[in-house]
């Protein structure tokens, strides 16, 4: 089976979410102050996560996160870290924007999102969209902040 087939198989996608929930990746915060950070506390539910990212020379060197969150929040953030580490800011922004299209129920490019296509049906449950985007919103804000800092230096 090709990767493409795997990523359209609901059983595999469910396993992926479970796996990222039970064993989240990059799930430890650092005290290193060179990381940009965002604390996201949902106003409507209990989710409360912090995302940190180290960006230099326009490249995302590392992303970490921690916090209390449901399966969807935890797994979507965990996958986000995997996807974006090593990417340039424009590459990352393209992926982030594609992801937001997907969770809004709009057209998207599955190839860009890899495992994160597991969240393609979340838009059908409006009350859970915020879960699937809490970590992604954090990185989106961090990328913006990094860009403005960068602009300032030029």
């Amino acid at each position: 089976m090709s990767v493409k087939d795997l990523l359209t198989n609901p059983d595999i996608l469910r396993e992926l979410i479970m796996d990222h929930y039970q064993y989240p990746h990059n799930h430890e915060l650092t005290k290193d102050t060179s990381y940009l950070r965002r604390h996201m506390a949902s106003e409507s539910c209990i989710d409360d996560i912090t995302v940190q990212a180290k960006i230099d020379d326009g490249i995302i060197r590392d992303i970490r996160f921690d916090g209390v969150a449901c399966t969807i929040s935890t797994a979507s953030t965990s996958m986000m870290t995997d996807l974006l580490i090593g990417k340039t800011i424009p590459e990352a922004q393209e992926i982030v924007s594609d992801y937001f299209h997907m969770v809004a129920g709009e057209d998207y490019d599955a190839d860009l999102l890899e495992e994160a296509v597991a969240f393609k049906n979340v838009y059908k449950q409006a009350n859970r969209i915020k879960c699937a985007t809490i970590g992604w919103n954090a990185i989106k804000e961090i990328l913006q902040e990094s860009e403005t800092q960068h602009d300032g230096q030029e």
């Binding site: 996608l13 469910r14 969807i72 969240f119 049906n121 979340v122 449950q125």
Partner: peptide
């Protein structure tokens, strides 16, 4: 279960 709870998205 964790599985059934995630299953609602598929």
């Amino acid at each position: 279960t964790l599985e059934s709870a995630i299953g609602i998205f598929f």
